[in-house]
Amino acid sequence: MFRYNKISERAQNLLKILVSRYIREGQPIGSRTLSRDVNLDLSPATIRNVMADLEEMGLVCSPHTSAGRVPTVRGYRLFVDTLLQIKPLNNEEESHLRRQFIQEYDIQRLLEQTSSLLSEVTHLAGVVMLPRRDSKALRHVEFLSLSEKRVLVVLVFNEKEVENRIIYTSRSYTSAELQSTANYLNNAFIGKNIKAVRSDLLRELQETRENMDKMMQAVIEMADKAFDSDETMERDFVIAGQTNLMEVADLSNIEKLRDLFIAFSEKHDILHLLDQALKAQSMQIFIGEESGYEVLGDCSVITSPYTVNGGMIGVLGVIGPTRMPYERVIPIVDLTAKLLGSALNHC
């Protein structure tokens, strides 16, 4: 773990100016440029020495020989954690955000509106995780055979929420077996929480495994896989403004952009990252490689959870280049999460 207290105040100040200028200008920052900064009273030689120290600590690097320096992921992290001065939104910006949540929408439209709003205001990609539902009451279930060992599960939850899932079974089941299994679950567990259904059946499996007939074996396997409590299966997100990233010079590599758009389409990696952010229960900033996904290596992701009835049920945020204006984006994400939570409480 890197220890920030090892860096002198002078070096921290120099790093702060370098990162701020690089975010603003997008070009490597040289010692001569820094020596002309009005906030520094240091000779060019002293600046070169401090820059060399920062490079040795892995906080800045030179993209080309004899070029200026740019911040590394570690440099951005130090900047964001200890040097960044968050700028409060001005009255006009805050009023604009609040006005977008005055009208009443259905939940899906509200989430889509929010991701578009984040994109519009930040000029980055806005993403909103669909609310997690801790309570899903089973209303109806059907199983349809697709092919050998593949079954389509049609689940109806709560009032009219429908989900389709494909599961892979340990053996092939006949249509009659699947119908019998669905009948059993519909008769025995209607109105019960699906997590409770799954846990009850698995407990029954442990208690009566030896005397269990083929019918109950089928019921338990189907319930185990159809009601899998892996939360990533129950998640989705809406995203807007992906094309904004095509205009960012730092992300102009066509192959990297393609991989990023594929990740947005396939969703799994992004969902996993959003799920990590939700579990943290606070604003999270993933910079470059910190996300754990190569496809996001040149990106930063800023997220904040939104709360309904006192419980954190999702996160929203923005995805953009590591060279983003953090001091402006962070308060936008924070306020938007609060406004979305408030709006959902009234839906």
Rank of each mutant, 00 (worst) to 15 (best):
G30P: 02
R32M: 00
D37W: 00
L42C: 00
D53P: 06
L54T: 04
E56N: 15
L59E: 00
P63A: 07
H64M: 06
V70P: 05
V73C: 06
K87Q: 11
P88Y: 09
L89Q: 12
N90K: 04
E92K: 11
S95Y: 10
H96T: 01
H96N: 01
D106G: 12
I107L: 08
Q108L: 14
L118M: 05
M129Q: 14
L130N: 15
R132M: 14
V141A: 12
S147H: 05
F157A: 07
T169R: 14
S175N: 03
L178Q: 01
S180I: 08
S180D: 10
T181Q: 08
Y184Q: 08
D200R: 07
R209V: 13
E210P: 10
M222A: 09
D224N: 08
D228L: 06
E234Y: 07
G241V: 02
E247V: 12
L251E: 06
E255A: 10
F264G: 15
S265W: 08
S265N: 15
H268R: 07
D269P: 06
Q276E: 14
I285A: 03
G288M: 07
E289L: 09
S291N: 00
G297W: 04
T307K: 14
G311Y: 10
L316Y: 05
V318T: 08
V318I: 05
Y326V: 04
Y326A: 04
V333I: 11
A343I: 01
